[in-house]
């Protein structure tokens, strides 16, 4: 069943000289529940804009974005914010953990915007998620005292704490060494799959992209399928294979 559907999505920004800069051009993409999709592209190719639109953080200037078959274009800001919290979990390249809050407080933070039982049980839920990512013993540590890999695991736990239906990951291994990156990516894919969440990953790293069910390339705002066989197992690469080498 299709969860997210982009139909002819365009995004343009105005320039100071009155011109228009196209960021995305007629992008079509469908993501089904529980599916893992990877999007690779150079810097400036529009990956972040695409992820912003998917996560309801930005709106397209053309085309239609359907969430659960419902158009999102006419949604009020309040409803968009609520959907963003309920449907999506975000994993950022720079982790974006809240400074000076413990790992547990960071993981529990999205539940501050939940209601009822979810809000009231937020600390217990956060502990459970930290246990799931192997950081139960580090729950009371602030991010400044965690390694990069640990911080990203906290970020993954945080992204999953509201049981999202889609996890949007932006370069989730970009700030990690190769081995740690592979472990974190495997954890993210596994945790998302466990929760039945679709995973949309943006990456430069083809090894990361290989984990996905479907892969796309974004080039100058145009999205095209990336034909490459998926590996059967996660193999940490000896060194990052930058996308720039693989792209024409």
């Amino acid at each position: 069943m299709t969860l997210l559907a982009l139909r002819g999505i365009s995004r343009e920004v105005g320039l100071p000289d009155g011109g228009v800069l196209p960021i995305l051009t007629r992008v079509d993409l469908e993501v089904a529940a529980g599916e893992h999709v990877a999007i690779v592209g150079r810097s400036g190719s529009g990956k972040s804009t695409l992820l912003n639109i998917l996560g309801l953080l930005d709106s397209p200037t053309g085309g239609e974005y359907l969430l659960d078959g419902e158009p999102t274009g006419a949604l009020r800001a309040r409803r968009r914010a609520r959907l963003r919290g309920e449907v999506f979990g975000f994993v950022f390249q720079q982790f974006n953990l809240l400074p000076r809050r413990t790992a547990e407080e960071n993981v529990a933070a999205p539940l501050l915007y939940a209601r009822g039982r979810d809000y009231l049980r937020r600390r217990r839920t956060a502990r459970e998620l930290l246990d799931r990512v192997g950081l139960g013993a580090r729950a009371d540590i602030v991010p400044e005292r965690l390694s990069g890999g640990e911080q990203q695991r906290v970020a993954i736990a945080r992204a999953l704490v509201r049981s999202p239906r889609v996890v949007l990951a932006d370069e989730p291994t970009g700030a990690l060494d190769v081995e740690t990156g592979a472990q974190v990516m495997a954890l993210l894919a596994e945790a998302a799959a466990e929760g039945g969440a679709a995973l949309v990953t943006i990456t430069h790293d083809l090894n990361v992209a290989r984990l996905a069910d479907r892969r796309y390339r974004l080039d100058a705002g145009r999205l095209t399928p990336l034909a490459e066989p998926a590996p059967t197992a996660v193999v940490p690469a000896p060194a990052a294979a930058p996308l720039e080498e693989a792209l024409p």
Binding site: A81, R84, G85, E86, N96, Y113
Partner: peptide
């Protein structure tokens, strides 16, 4: 600002 942006990604509304 970054922290506020992160909170918006959690579903924080403008009024919140």
């Amino acid at each position: 600002i970054r922290e506020i942006g992160v909170r918006r990604s959690f579903g924080a509304t403008s009024s919140r």
